[in-house]
């Protein structure tokens, strides 16, 4: 098993962050989590710690998730960002992908979706 993963979870809801982290923990070995409660905080914390994977909600105060994707990708084009949102419309999906997101999970999250994303984004490192 290689070095433990660092995963940034950006959501304004403490409950949504907890639920997502609980699911991720089931499929990874001792991940290190970084919490962000809005888009700007996610950008700042990404730049500080360059996590292996980022999960971002769309609807957040101060700066929304899709703007945050654009800024993070602007700073680091190799960033792996997955959008986790209840607003899973075609338009939002398109905007997220155009901004540089790698995947999109529709809330309410299902464990198998999170597992698939972990497998496809970080593969055997999980």
């Amino acid at each position: 098993m290689s070095a433990n993963l660092t995963i940034l979870v950006g959501d304004d809801s403490i409950l949504a962050r907890k639920q997502l982290k609980d699911v991720i923990t089931k499929f990874t070995t001792d991940p290190t989590f970084i919490d962000a409660s809005n888009g700007q905080e996610a950008i700042d914390k990404y730049k500080e710690s360059h996590p292996d994977l980022v999960f971002l909600d769309i609807v957040m105060p101060i700066k929304d998730g899709i703007s945050a994707v654009g800024e993070i990708i602007g700073a680091d084009p190799t960033a792996k960002i997955v959008i986790v949102s209840s607003v899973g419309t075609q338009e939002q999906l398109k905007r997220a992908i155009e901004a540089g997101a790698k995947d999109f999970i529709q809330k309410p999250i299902r464990e198998d979706q999170v597992q698939n994303v972990l497998n496809s984004q970080i593969g055997d490192r999980s």
Binding site: S13, S85, V87, G88, T89, K107
Partner: peptide
């Protein structure tokens, strides 16, 4: 309090998906 906000946000998100579809 986050649960109340989450419920509303999830519901409205699903509404936006329906509006779009």
């Amino acid at each position: 309090s986050a649960s109340l906000e989450d419920f509303l946000n999830l519901h409205n998100g699903l509404f936006s998906v329906n509006m779009s579809n």
